[in-house]
């Protein structure tokens, strides 16, 4: 989950800031000789590490700490900014970590790490999520970064979001008012914006039972450790050589990752061989990328269409092979 800091020039800021006694940002100065000033030293950061959800929610309602889990997005994002007055580490909360089989689906706890997801015994529809997990930063990042952190960071290029969208994932939130559920598509509102309310945290992602085989493809400037220029997740169930059930989502091609319902409707019932032509011919309003340092909008658009065809093909072929086996 390096999306937060990856594009930014390497900077020694935040760690230095934590190490030295500087915490208040009364000015916009990045770093200055006043680091060790006594007045700054008084404002120490508090780190809460509660063990129960109740305690965590009470703390959140108190001095409004920022929530910390794996920290892989949070630390780099802080950079040269002020150290927060308080952080709430949720990784010790019991019941928040791990994958549980429910009556009608799976519950992935908020602080479940990417490496745990990649190693979990899950049905084939989760293969796209696992493939995305293996692309999140590097092994060290996957050992720290959490699934809820990935969605709460709300980067348009979050690797975890498209595969969770094709799984129809639902976000479980807990706050003072109790527990509520939101479809993932309604939770992520825009770049770095979510539907999280004050003093509320994500406690889990609920994935209903879904048919088919998952796949995930990501295009970056190099093979490893990159932020996506475009990515696609697909979930495909085949029946008699035709697409029986299909879900497709694109990421890094707009302010938020999105499902492609028009394409899904048109492709259902089609043969795999027709997918490429149909994708080329249909307008896909969800693919509305921007030009940025990583790629031009035009390139992203073309690449996304190519990835859609490949991801569907990959999932469909794996699905048919597993039927044969």
């Amino acid at each position: 989950m390096l999306q937060g800091g990856m594009g930014i020039a390497i900077d020694r800021g935040f760690a230095a800031l934590l190490r030295f006694e500087c915490s208040h940002s009364h000015t916009n100065e990045k770093r200055g000789p006043a680091w060790g000033a006594a007045k700054d030293r008084e404002a120490a950061m508090t780190l809460h590490r509660p063990e129960s959800l109740e305690d965590a929610l009470a703390l959140l309602a108190g001095d409004a700490p920022r929530v910390l889990a794996g920290g892989t997005d949070l630390y780099p994002a802080l950079q040269d900014g002020p150290a927060p007055a308080a952080l709430l580490d949720i990784t010790r909360i019991k019941g928040l970590c791990g994958i549980t089989r429910m009556d009608d689906g799976w519950r992935i706890g908020a602080t479940t790490r990417w490496s745990d997801i990649c190693a979990a015994d899950l049905p084939p529809c989760f293969d796209g999520l696992k493939q995305a997990g293996a692309e999140v930063g590097s092994i060290q990042i996957q050992n720290a970064g959490t699934i809820a952190g990935n969605i709460c960071n709300a980067s348009p290029a979050a690797d975890g979001v498209p595969p969770l969208l094709v799984l129809d994932a639902i976000v479980e939130l807990a706050g003072a008012g109790g527990v509520r559920h939101l479809p993932l598509a309604d939770f992520i509102l825009g770049p770095r914006r979510t539907a999280l309310r004050d003093a509320e945290i994500v406690t889990a992602l609920m994935v209903p039972d879904r048919a088919g085989q998952g796949a995930f493809l990501k295009l970056g400037a190099r093979r490893y450790l990159v932020i996506s220029m475009a990515m696609v997740a697909a979930r495909v169930a085949m029946d008699g050589g035709k697409i029986a059930d299909l879900a497709v989502a694109v990421g890094a091609c707009g302010p938020v990752a999105a499902r492609l319902p028009e394409l899904e409707a048109v492709l259902t019932g089609c043969a795999l061989a027709d997918v490429a032509d149909i994708v080329e011919g249909i307008p896909l309003p969800q693919i509305a990328p921007i030009d940025d340092v990583r790629a031009s909008a035009t390139y992203r658009e073309e690449a996304a269409c190519g990835l859609i065809v490949r991801a569907i093909t990959q999932a469909a072929q794996a699905s048919e092979q597993s039927h044969v086996a």
Binding site: G5, I10, D11, A15, R49, Q79, D89, Q140
Partner: peptide, 25 residues
């Protein structure tokens, strides 16, 4: 200092992590 480079890699409870982006607490 930003978890990109891996020079700070240590093994923590059996897993590789980057010690530059984790509080000792």
């Amino acid at each position: 200092d930003t978890s990109h480079c891996g020079a700070c890699t240590v093994t923590l409870d059996g897993k590789s992590v980057k010690a530059c982006t984790m509080f000792v607490a």
